[in-house]
């Protein structure tokens, strides 16, 4: 554990809590892509199957259980409890394509051709692109509530901080996992436009509206 990894995890945790608070307080999931949330739930489910086979630490286990439980709770809120507020007609990204491409890539490029390893690799590839339906939705509507943009900023920062963690681990511990690193770079890269808008608009107290 290093400081980049810890702040990254805390940023990830904050993102999930911000999203749950937004939905719960406003009794609405408007502006949130149910498809991105379904993809994140698939990511956690495939990656954290090792909860049953591999113990790392209390911290690791607690975080995994929280991420799994909160993602299923989010899905429940969007598709059941507050489904009347879900903007289905704006959430039109073809997310099946992301799943198919991630499955194929995981089968072709992995560290070891075993079920658990391929599921882990699939979760890494899918996580890299899972935010696309959400970003697509914002592009389509041209705006996002400020709490939704705080959510996205925390979620995007998390993988960026993991990149710093991987650089640190490479130099200090000699660890290098190209699958995680390259996917993390792609994942963080997808947020670049959003980061720019967040820093230039939301941080100055303006709403996140896309330039026409």
């Amino acid at each position: 554990m290093n400081v980049f990894r810890l702040i990254g995890d805390m940023s990830h945790l904050a993102a999930i809590i911000i999203l749950l608070i937004k939905i719960w307080r406003s009794r609405s999931c408007s502006g949130i892509s149910g498809k991105s949330q379904l993809l994140f739930t698939a990511v956690f489910t495939c990656r954290y199957l090792d909860l049953f086979t591999n113990f790392v630490s209390i911290y690791n286990t607690t975080m995994k259980i929280f991420f799994l439980a909160s993602s299923y709770a989010t899905i429940y809120l969007i598709f059941m409890k507050f489904k009347a507020t879900y903007n289905r007609n704006h959430d039109t990204f073809r997310f099946e394509l992301l799943i198919v491409v991630s499955v194929i890539l995981a089968l072709l490029i992995n560290h070891e051709f075993s079920a658990t390893e391929i599921l882990w690799t699939f979760s890494i590839y899918l996580e890299a692109v899972a935010i696309l339906p959400q970003l697509f939705m914002i592009t389509k509507t041209g705006e996002a509530e400020s709490i939704t943009s705080h959510y996205l900023f925390a979620l995007g920062s998390y993988r960026g901080l993991y990149i710093l963690n991987w650089i640190y681990r490479y130099y200090v511990e000699g660890h290098l996992d190209w699958i995680a690193v390259l996917s993390g770079i792609v994942q963080t890269g997808l947020y670049c436009d959003f980061f720019y808008l967040y820093i230039t608009r939301v941080m100055k107290g303006k709403n996140l509206t896309l330039p026409a």
Partner: peptide
């Protein structure tokens, strides 16, 4: 070494 790295991260 690789296995350790990814299994201890979230």
């Amino acid at each position: 070494v690789m296995r350790y790295m990814k299994k201890d991260e979230l």
